[in-house]
Simulated assay, not measured.
Amino acid sequence: MENTQYISAYLAGYLRDMGAKPELFELLSGTSPGDMFIPNSAQIAALNIVPQLGFHDFRLMPKDGLIVATAVDERNPGALERLYEIETFCWKKRPIINLYATSERQGLSPEMASRSTTHIDGFRIDTPSGSYEYGSDRIKLYPNQRLLASLIIDPNVARALGSGSGMVVVNSYTASGVLIGGRIEAPSGGDQAILASFRECL
């Protein structure tokens, strides 16, 4: 009994450390010794057995009098890639996407954010209904802070982005070391939180 308790605690801790949901241990423990728990594809995602890549599970929350949808992807930032969090909302009837780094230290330098010296010339949104390119007049860059950029998109693009998986990519026309982009992984039927955050703009 003592060994069983020790092994159970060890396995539960291991699954937790690996990011799996606690329900996985219950399902494993509830399977008879002569049988084997084999998760289906829905359970693999729901129990976080294989972590989802990209920005997913957007949450609605209030912020500065607005309703925003936000998601983080701890795996996205890298040596050059800065994007850690994506936020969507409607401001003055315009759909906006805010892009954030993990910290101010990983934000943009004044040279990267200044219109006179930046190599960033716009952005691209990939959606199930197509790709949409925007120029520098639709992007605002921020120096020395966690907020990297605000992207102004059209209502039809906002609707398409909320309707399925997509991609947000900030364009740099040189090898400047500026990478800002990430994939949005939506559940079947689209991401309802993203659509709700854009509702006043659609």
Rank of each mutant, 00 (worst) to 15 (best):
Y6L: 11
A20D: 10
E23H: 13
E23I: 15
F25S: 04
L28T: 05
G30M: 07
I44E: 07
A46G: 10
V50Y: 07
Q52L: 14
L53H: 09
R59C: 04
R59V: 14
I67T: 03
V68S: 00
A69L: 08
T70A: 04
V72D: 03
A79Q: 14
E85W: 06
P95Q: 03
I97R: 04
N98R: 07
S103M: 04
S103W: 04
E104W: 03
Q106G: 07
S114T: 14
S114N: 15
S116H: 08
T118D: 11
H119A: 14
G122F: 12
R124L: 14
G130T: 08
G130M: 09
Y132V: 01
Y132C: 00
E133G: 08
G135D: 15
R138L: 06
N144Q: 14
Q145P: 05
R146A: 06
L147I: 10
S150L: 05
P155M: 04
P155K: 02
N156I: 08
G162Q: 08
S163D: 10
G166Y: 00
V168E: 09
S172C: 15
Y173M: 04
A175K: 11
A175F: 12
V178P: 02
V178Q: 08
L179P: 00
L179Y: 07
G181D: 13
G182Q: 09
E185A: 14
E185K: 13
S188F: 02
S188A: 13
Q192R: 11
